[in-house]
Deep mutational scan, measured.
Amino acid sequence: SRWTEEEMETAKKGLLEHGRNWSAIARMVGSKTVSQCKNFYFNYKKRQNLDEILQQHK
């Protein structure tokens, strides 16, 4: 299923807060499964600069 802007923003916040904790990110997004969140990261990594966001994760 397609990702809305809102879901993407929430997933990015999740990456920032939780790093690669996909289940925590899935809980934040609410409408996507753990594997969908993981796939989002790998599919949108380049397009959305997700690696940069991940590097900011403490």
Results as ranks from 00 to 15, higher is better:
S31H: 04
A11M: 15
G19N: 01
I53W: 07
K13N: 08
L15S: 09
R2F: 12
K32F: 02
S1T: 09
G14P: 06
K13H: 02
V29M: 08
E52K: 10
K45V: 13
Q55I: 04
G30F: 13
N49K: 12
M8P: 09
T4H: 03
G19W: 10
S23K: 11
N21K: 04
M28D: 04
L16C: 07
A24T: 09
E6D: 10
V29I: 12
Y41Q: 01
R47K: 14
M8V: 09
K58T: 06
H18P: 04
K13Q: 06
F40W: 14
L54A: 13
Q36A: 14
S1I: 07
E7Q: 03
V34F: 06
S35C: 05
E5M: 07
K45F: 09
Q48S: 11
S35T: 11
Q48A: 13
Q48K: 15
N21Y: 14
F42E: 15
A26S: 11
F40S: 01
I53Y: 12
R47D: 09
H57A: 11
F40K: 06
K38F: 02
S31I: 00
Q36Y: 14
F40R: 03
K58M: 15
E17M: 07
L50G: 13
C37R: 00
Y44K: 02
N21R: 02
E6N: 07
T4W: 03
D51F: 00
R47L: 12
E6R: 11
L15P: 05
H18R: 14
G14C: 10
A24P: 02
Y41W: 13
T33V: 15
A11T: 04
F42L: 11
L54M: 08
Q55W: 05
S31D: 00
C37T: 05
E52M: 01
K38Q: 09
I25A: 03
R47S: 15
T10A: 07
N21D: 08
A11V: 13
T4N: 04
E5A: 10
W3L: 09
N49Q: 03
E52H: 12
A24V: 09
Q36E: 15
L16M: 08
L16P: 02
E5C: 06
M28V: 06
G14Q: 04
E7P: 06
R2K: 14
N43P: 02
W3Y: 10
N43S: 07
G30Y: 14
I25S: 04
W22E: 00
H18N: 07
K46T: 12
M28T: 06
E9Y: 06
T33A: 09
Y44I: 11
T33W: 02
F42W: 11
C37A: 08
I53T: 05
T4P: 02
R20N: 11
C37K: 00
K13C: 03
W22C: 01
K45D: 07
T33C: 12
M8H: 09
V34M: 07
L16G: 06
N43L: 04
D51R: 15
Y41M: 08
E17K: 11
C37V: 15
E9K: 15
I25M: 08
E5I: 09
N49S: 10
N39L: 07
K32H: 03
H18I: 07
T10N: 12
R2I: 14
R27F: 04
L15H: 03
S1R: 15
S23A: 11
S35P: 03
L16E: 07
F40E: 01
S31L: 05
V34G: 04
D51N: 03
C37M: 12
W22F: 12
L50Y: 01
L50P: 07
A26T: 02
E9L: 05
F42P: 01
L50A: 11
W22T: 04
Q36V: 15
A24R: 08
L15R: 11
H18S: 04
E7V: 10
E6F: 04
A26L: 12
Q55C: 04
K13V: 04
W3H: 06
Y44Q: 08
R47V: 15
I25E: 01
F40C: 03
E9A: 15
S1N: 15
S35G: 11
V34K: 13
L16S: 08
S31P: 00
E9H: 07
S31G: 05
G19F: 15
I25G: 00
S35K: 13
S23M: 11
F40I: 05
N49R: 11
G19D: 01
Y41F: 14
W3R: 13
S23N: 15
I25H: 04
R20H: 02
W22P: 03
A24W: 03
S35M: 10
K46S: 12
K45Q: 03
S31R: 06
T10K: 14
H57K: 12
R2S: 11
I53A: 14
A26R: 01
A24Q: 13
W22M: 03
M28Q: 13
I53E: 09
T10E: 11
C37S: 00
E5Q: 09
R20T: 15
T10S: 12
S23G: 12
Q48F: 13
H18D: 01
L15V: 04
E52G: 05
N39M: 11
N21T: 03
L16N: 05
N39R: 03
C37G: 00
W3G: 09
E7K: 10
S23F: 12
N49F: 06
L15C: 05
A11N: 02
G30L: 14
E6W: 00
A11W: 11
L16D: 01
M28C: 03
Y44D: 03
S23V: 15
L54D: 14
S1W: 15
W3Q: 14
H18T: 04
N39A: 12
F42K: 15
L50H: 10
F42G: 05
K13M: 01
H57I: 15
R20V: 07
E6V: 10
A24C: 05
A26D: 01
L54H: 05
E17I: 13
F42T: 08
T10Q: 12
E5S: 06
S35R: 08
H57N: 04
L15W: 03
I25W: 15
E17T: 05
K13F: 03
Q55F: 08
M8C: 00
S23T: 12
F40P: 00
R47M: 05
M28H: 06
S35A: 13
I25T: 01
K32D: 00
I53H: 11
K45P: 06
K32I: 00
S35Q: 13
V34N: 02
M8L: 04
E9R: 05
R27I: 03
Y41E: 01
L54R: 09
Y44W: 12
R27C: 02
C37W: 06
W22G: 03
R2C: 06
L50I: 05
N49Y: 06
M8T: 08
S31C: 01
N49T: 09
E5W: 06
E7D: 09
I53G: 10
H57W: 10
W3T: 09
M8R: 07
M28W: 11
L54Q: 09
K32Y: 05
A11K: 13
N43A: 11
L50F: 10
I53R: 09
M28L: 12
V34W: 11
R20K: 14
W22S: 01
I25V: 09
H18W: 11
R2T: 14
E9S: 05
G30C: 10
E7L: 11
Y44N: 11
R27H: 05
K13Y: 01
E6S: 10
Q48C: 07
T4G: 01
K58Y: 15
K38Y: 04
K45A: 08
E6C: 01
N39Q: 13
Q55L: 08
S23W: 15
N43Y: 06
G30T: 06
S35E: 14
K38G: 00
M28S: 10
R47Q: 08
E5L: 08
A11D: 01
H57P: 13
W22Y: 07
F42Q: 13
F40G: 01
